[in-house]
């Protein structure tokens, strides 16, 4: 005789019963327990119109634009003018001979050295003198041209420098802009954090009166003293919800939430001096 005298039928029915018991237990857990958490009948505190326009953050980055930009413009103008005044009178004189000169020069240029080399030949000194004169004129013209070229180079350099400074300024401005954006983002997140904290603290303190419609909305203007306490009579009802009990409950909650969490940074704290709160169920 086997020691275990369980019947097969018993085994099956016992197993089925065990399953039934578990199914019952879990259905009990599932149905009798309200797993879907309803939004608590607490109120939502919002900051509408949130805060007064953000105070410009006192970023102490020197703005180099006024320093650099005004300096370069006056420089190129006088240079240009000087170049013209210098070159024009020089050019007026040789204008008459210039045409012949150029022809001559071109002829001469082919062999200027042999012409200069044989000075012993007394063939025609006048011609030589002429040549020398023309040489001088050519040199003058050349010098003027060189001057002009130099001026142009200088002007170009000036322009490049100008452009460079402009570009640098641009870059600096961009850098500053990005830094400012970063700072602004940081302050914005900080502001949001404190806003959330203030809202949480007020909504924690609200004692909900009965029979408040879901659409009720009370708006308050709150004047906050440094340190987070609310000024006496500093809570002004701007827009009533239509339910006096609700309005006073919200007002009491605001007073009870003292001290309101305030940022340490004074510049930020200044933004929280005047809060506009909207309280909704």
């Amino acid at each position: 005789m086997s020691t275990l005298s369980y019947y097969e039928g018993h085994k099956f029915s016992a197993g089925a019963l065990a399953l039934v018991v578990h199914a019952l237990f879990f259905s009990l857990l599932y149905f009798s327990f309200n797993w879907h958490v309803k939004r608590p009948p607490n109120m939502i505190v919002e900051m509408w119109d949130s805060l007064p326009d953000p105070v410009p953050i006192p970023v102490t980055i020197p703005n180099p634009t006024p320093e650099i930009i005004p300096a370069p413009p006056p420089l190129p103008m006088p240079v240009l003018q000087r170049a013209e005044t210098v070159s024009i009178p020089k050019q007026t004189e040789p204008v008459v001979t210039a045409k012949a000169d150029i022809n001559f020069k071109e002829n001469k240029k082919k062999k200027p050295v042999p012409a200069a080399k044989p000075p012993a030949k007394p063939e025609n000194i006048i011609q030589r003198l002429e040549v020398e004169k023309q040489h001088a004129v050519a040199a003058q013209v050349e010098q003027a041209k060189k001057q002009e070229l130099e001026d142009q180079i200088a002007r170009e350099k000036q322009l490049a420098a100008e452009e460079r400074t402009v570009r640098e300024n641009e870059r600096a401005r961009e850098h500053i802009e990005s830094m400012r954006a970063e700072v602004e983002a940081a302050t914005a997140s900080e502001v949001a954090r404190y806003k959330e904290m203030i809202q949480a603290k007020i909504s924690r303190n609200i004692v909900m009166p009965p029979d408040v419609p879901d659409t009720a909305e009370a708006k308050f203007m709150v004047i906050v003293l440094p340190g987070g306490s609310v000024m006496n009579d500093g809570v002004k009802l701007i827009k009533s919800s239509g339910n006096a009990a609700y309005d006073s409950a919200a007002e009491r909650a605001i007073y009870k939430a003292q001290p309101l969490p305030m940022p340490q940074d004074e510049a930020l704290a200044r933004m929280f001096r005047e809060l506009r709160l909207s309280v909704k169920p």
Binding site: S5, Y6, H10, K11, A14, L17, A18, H22
Partner: peptide
Amino acid sequence: LLLVSLLSWWYIFLKMFS
């Protein structure tokens, strides 16, 4: 725990019957 619970309930019913 679910396994243990199922087994123990099975034994509970088996023992009850036997």
